[in-house]
Computed example of a mutant assay.
Amino acid sequence: MSQQLVLDRGTQDAKQLARVLYLVHACTFFFSLGMLSFLPLIVNYVKRPDTSGTLVYSHHTWMIRSFWYYMVWMVVGGIIFATIIGFPLAVAIWGLAWLWKAYRLIRGFLDLDSNKPMPV
Rank of each mutant, 00 (worst) to 15 (best):
V6F: 07
L7M: 13
D8E: 15
R9W: 12
G10H: 14
G10V: 11
T11G: 10
Q12G: 11
D13I: 14
D13H: 14
D13F: 13
A14R: 10
A14F: 01
K15G: 10
K15W: 12
K15T: 10
Q16P: 05
Q16Y: 12
Q16H: 13
A18Y: 00
R19M: 13
V20Q: 14
L21F: 00
L21N: 02
H25F: 08
A26F: 09
A26Q: 10
C27V: 15
T28N: 09
F30H: 11
F31S: 15
F31I: 11
F31P: 12
F31L: 14
S32V: 08
G34L: 06
G34V: 05
M35H: 07
M35C: 07
M35R: 08
L36H: 08
S37T: 11
F38H: 08
F38E: 11
F38D: 08
L39T: 00
P40F: 03
L41F: 08
L41I: 00
L41V: 03
I42R: 08
I42L: 13
I42P: 07
I42N: 04
V43P: 03
V43Q: 05
V43H: 04
N44G: 03
Y45G: 11
Y45N: 11
Y45M: 11
V46M: 03
V46H: 10
K47G: 06
K47W: 08
R48Q: 14
R48V: 12
R48H: 08
P49L: 04
D50C: 06
T51W: 07
T51A: 15
S52K: 15
G53L: 01
G53P: 02
G53Q: 04
G53D: 05
V56L: 07
V56F: 05
V56R: 07
V56Y: 06
Y57D: 13
Y57C: 09
S58P: 03
S58D: 11
S58Q: 07
S58Y: 09
S58R: 05
H59G: 04
H59I: 08
H59F: 00
H59S: 02
H60F: 15
H60E: 09
T61K: 12
M63F: 05
M63W: 02
I64C: 06
R65C: 02
S66A: 10
F67L: 00
F67R: 03
Y69R: 01
Y69P: 02
Y70A: 02
Y70E: 04
Y70S: 03
M71K: 11
M71V: 12
V72S: 07
V72Q: 04
V72T: 10
V72D: 00
W73S: 01
W73L: 05
M74F: 05
V75W: 01
G77N: 02
G77A: 13
G77E: 05
G77C: 01
G78W: 00
G78R: 01
G78E: 00
I79C: 01
I79Q: 01
I79G: 03
I79P: 00
I80V: 14
F81M: 08
F81Y: 13
A82H: 07
T83I: 09
I84E: 15
I85Y: 15
I85P: 14
G86I: 04
G86A: 04
G86Y: 03
F87Y: 12
P88S: 02
L89Y: 04
A90Q: 06
A90W: 08
A90L: 07
V91K: 14
V91Q: 13
V91F: 10
A92C: 10
I93P: 08
I93Y: 07
I93T: 06
